[in-house]
């Protein structure tokens, strides 16, 4: 009994140490995801502390500088712009809106990618040929040009429509990635074991293959999100996004239209740009971190964590 007790004690100790010895504690990944969590919290908790109605036209006095500048007021700490919108309120509303577009577009792209990539990789043959040819063709299309033409024709009522349009070009990357992963996994011993255990193909895909692709999927998703945000911001800055709901790109669009640059209204155009840079950096760090988690060879010596 005593032997058993000490045995389980050492096991428990080993487990306690091992919790921290995981590739998921990658410095880049942790930094990136922490920043995203902070940005998200700003957007999610912001409405509790700040009146989001101030994000709409004529809700505040116009052209107020931030509170630390001469003429600023603590009622509008980041200032207001020429249409009478409060900058802080616009950021509180705009950040989640932009993240939502990115997440939605990337998730749809990922979903299509998982479906097509798995079919191509698992079935092979003609299915593979057809899917691969279409995917490779779509990848070569300059997407921003097509997106601009589409967005110019479709009047977008909200961010969801925006996300759907962006998803049109968000699936070829994930499709190729997943196809190649499925191709290698298909030859693995545990997939053969599942075949021998009479496991149906769909279940093999979902429960044997997908768990082993998680780091790749996550890296591809974070990359996809920042790509979609970039696309959405580009369209919005050109004035092709939904105009009613403020988002980071829309703020930039208004600033450009109202010549904020030449009028020296730094507080108008700089905050959305800084926020975007923070978001892109964070997603980039997450993607690179996840890549290192998925490919141990990239971790290098000594900084395995």
């Amino acid at each position: 009994m005593a032997v058993l007790a000490t045995n389980s004690n050492t096991q428990a100790a080993a487990r306690r140490v091992n919790i921290w010895d995981t590739p998921w504690l990658n410095a880049k990944f942790v930094t990136g995801s922490s920043i995203i969590v902070l940005v998200l919290l700003f957007g999610l908790l912001g409405p509790l502390f700040w009146n989001t109605d101030l994000a709409f036209t004529a809700s505040s006095p116009v052209n107020l500088p931030p509170m630390w500048d001469k003429g600023g007021s603590p009622e509008h700490p980041l200032g207001t712009e020429s249409n009478g919108r409060d900058m802080l309120a616009q950021l509180v509303v705009g950040i989640p809106a932009s993240l939502k577009v990115g997440l939605l577009a990337a998730s749809i792209g990922m979903g299509i990618g998982i479906l097509l990539g798995s079919l191509a990789g698992y079935l092979g043959g003609w299915t593979d040929h057809i899917i691969r040819t279409i995917t490779d063709s779509v990848i070569t299309i300059p997407s921003l040009m097509v997106l601009i033409s589409i967005a110019a024709y479709v009047r977008m009522p909200d961010t969801t429509a925006m996300a759907l349009i962006l998803a049109l070009f968000a699936w070829p990357g994930p499709t190729r990635l997943i196809r190649s992963q499925v191709l290698t996994l298909r030859e693995r011993g545990f997939v053969r074991m599942a075949l021998l255990s009479n496991v149906p193909a769909l279940e093999i895909m979902l429960f044997e293959m997908v768990p082993n692709m998680l780091p790749w999927l996550a890296a591809s998703l974070t990359g996809g999100i920042s790509g979609a945000i970039l696309g959405a911001t580009g369209l919005e800055a050109l004035g092709l996004g939904p105009t009613r709901v403020p988002s980071l790109g829309t703020i930039i669009n208004y600033a450009l239209n109202s010549s904020a640059l030449v009028r020296g209204m730094v507080w108008w155009w700089l905050p959305p740009i800084i926020t975007l840079v923070i978001i892109f950096t964070a997603f980039f760090l997450m993607t690179v971190g996840l890549d290192e988690i998925a490919n141990p060879r990239l971790r290098g010596y000594g900084n395995g964590k």
Binding site: F190, N198, E208
Partner: peptide
């Protein structure tokens, strides 16, 4: 190779029991 690193050893038996 024949074990999915994601699961415990019992998984290999459960698959067999369930699908047959």
């Amino acid at each position: 190779e024949v074990y999915n690193p994601f699961y415990r050893v019992s998984h290999i038996f459960n698959m067999v029991v369930r699908h047959f």
